[in-house]
Design a protein around this nucleic acid. Sequence first.
DNA 1: CCGAAGTTCGACCTGAGAGTCAAGACTTGT
DNA 2: ACAAGTCTTGACTCTCAGGTCGAACTTCGG
Lengths: 202, 202
Amino acid sequence: MNRVQRKRDERVRRIVAVAAEVFGERGYEATSLEEVAERLDVTKGSLYYYFAGKDELATAAIETLGTDWTERLEALARTLADVPRPERLRALLREHIAIAVHEYPAALRLFLVPDSWPTALRDRIRELRRRHDLVFRREITAGVAAGDFAVVSVDATLQAMHATMSQAPLWCSHLAAEAQERAIDDLAAVLCKLAGEQKGSL
Amino acid sequence: MNRVQRKRDERVRRIVAVAAEVFGERGYEATSLEEVAERLDVTKGSLYYYFAGKDELATAAIETLGTDWTERLEALARTLADVPRPERLRALLREHIAIAVHEYPAALRLFLVPDSWPTALRDRIRELRRRHDLVFRREITAGVAAGDFAVVSVDATLQAMHATMSQAPLWCSHLAAEAQERAIDDLAAVLCKLAGEQKGSL
DNA sequence: CCGAAGTTCGACCTGAGAGTCAAGACTTGT
DNA sequence: ACAAGTCTTGACTCTCAGGTCGAACTTCGG
């Protein structure tokens, strides 16, 4: 029975992964369960054995992708724990953008749910994002406290970083593999300036 | 007969404006012509008198909103022509974000079309965006040439600015009017650092 | 005031896709 | 091997929204 449970979990995981992919490519409305089923080599009917309906599947996709990504980011921050301050942020940004581009290219469209969606889901997404941003927020506030960074507004800085990173896959998708890596480096370097000390303008 | 033409143009303009609004709120797929018609106080049928179908209406909405916005931006750049260099970019960014937030809150969703859309439309959108970005590109390259700015990569800088500005309405929509204005100022100040001279990191 | 052109209406058709379900196929423990 | 539980299927219904169309209504030039 544990064996059974395992298999079921595995199955659910696969379904959710594929669903996240399709929802991200097509958007919620344009995604048909038929297509999700097709990519899984099953029929639409059996999806209903695991999920009550389209909404629940989409919710699960958002939830899973959101927490997985955040956990990876937190692990990454731990890995980079002993890199010195100015480089640390840069490395964190770079790796994060790379992950976004290579592994979660569908995230932007998946999380950009219409205003008409249930409030509960929208709140959940905001919560996921807050936790996600926390890694960078900590990094910046610590840097500011130590005098290594200087920002006009932590929130606005975070917002700019987040917006840029979430749109990176869109920008990079048309580039060849090499150019893509350079673009990722460039973006990280550029975003790093957001935290750096300002010089010149007001 | 000119009178007739005028009236027709006016009508088309209204339809497109409302359509852009709805498409931006709901996304392409979730938008029903019924709803567009309802907001215009007409019935679905009469929309077909002006547009061949949903696609054509969406295309017109994208086209109109894209060119209108770009023209406003270009006019704005002309207005700010004699502001000195470091402030000029900042003012341009600020005004542009303000316009985005207050007048084109639907732009992000409207322009973020799925991969499955016709290539012609996707190409057109990319072209609109290029022209749109040109204002900022000129500003930055001129500043770099004059030694006022220093950037790692013009493209990446532009991308970061564009991404942040296009997501600004989403971020600001939950804020009260005053907080919104402050957020816009903060974002402009933050983005301005992207062009400024770097200090410290590699 | 009339006829023609321009415009709107609303009933209708159609296809796509969400969701249901009874029957059968496969797995697993004994 | 067999029975109980687990999963998959494919045919079915139903709703919703895109699109069509002829009739009716409005506007305009003469």
